[in-house]
Computed example of a mutant assay.
Amino acid sequence: MVETRIAPRYRVSKPAQIEYGGDKIACVIRDLSITGAALQLSDRSAIIPTAFTLIMLEDNLKLTCRVVWRAAFKIGVAFD
């Protein structure tokens, strides 16, 4: 398989939150790069908008994201 990503991704397991419209949904970052991440959701029925803020409490970071792919319990995001 040929890697087509701009930046290499690193496997991680970091707790995070998806924030939009005053709501926060818990998630886990499963892989991470400087350009994006894969997020695992605990609730498949959660409605995640196309754009949101990803909060990484451990790192004291808030990053604006947009969804680039979706699967049952995972979403891929690009950082804006």
Score class of each variant (00 low, 15 high):
Gly36Asp: 03
Arg44Gln: 08
Leu39Ala: 07
Thr35Ser: 09
Thr35Leu: 04
Arg30Thr: 08
Ser45Thr: 14
Glu58Leu: 11
Asp59Gly: 08
Met56Ser: 09
Ile47Ser: 10
Arg30Phe: 06
Ile55Leu: 02
Ala37Met: 04
Leu32Asp: 02
Ile55Phe: 00
Asp43Gly: 00
Ala46Glu: 07
Leu54Gln: 12
Ile48Gln: 00
Ala38Phe: 05
Asp31Ala: 01
Leu32Val: 08
Leu32Glu: 00
Ile34Leu: 11
Leu41Asn: 10
Gly36Trp: 04
Ser42Gln: 12
Phe52Gly: 02
Ile55Lys: 03
Ser33Trp: 03
Ser33Cys: 06
Pro49Ser: 14
Leu32Gln: 02
Arg30Ser: 05
Ile34Ala: 04
Ala46Val: 15
Ala37Val: 06
Thr50Lys: 14
Ala37Arg: 01
Thr35Gln: 04
Ala38Pro: 01
Thr53Trp: 01
Thr35Trp: 01
Ala51Ser: 13
Thr35Ala: 05
Ile55Val: 15
Thr35Arg: 03
Pro49Arg: 10
Leu32His: 03
Ser33Tyr: 04
Ala51Arg: 15
Asp31Thr: 06
Ala38Thr: 13
Ile48His: 01
Asp31Gln: 03
Ile48Gly: 00
Glu58Ser: 14
Thr35Pro: 02
Pro49Lys: 10
Ala46Cys: 12
Ser45Lys: 09
Thr53Gly: 00
Ile48Lys: 01
Thr35Ile: 08
Leu54His: 14
Asp59His: 14
Thr50Arg: 11
Ala46Thr: 13
Arg30Trp: 06
Arg44Met: 07
Pro49Tyr: 13
Gly36Met: 03
Leu54Tyr: 14
Leu32Arg: 02
Gln40Lys: 09
Ser42Ile: 14
Thr53Glu: 11
Thr53Gln: 13
Ile48Trp: 01
Ser42Tyr: 04
Ile47Gly: 02
Met56Ile: 13
Ser45Asn: 13
Met56Asp: 07
Ile48Tyr: 01
Thr50Gly: 04
Met56Lys: 12
Gln40Ser: 09
Ile34Val: 13
Leu39Pro: 07
Thr53Arg: 14
Ile34Met: 10
Thr35Tyr: 03
Asp43Tyr: 00
Leu57Phe: 12
Ala51Cys: 05
Thr53Leu: 02
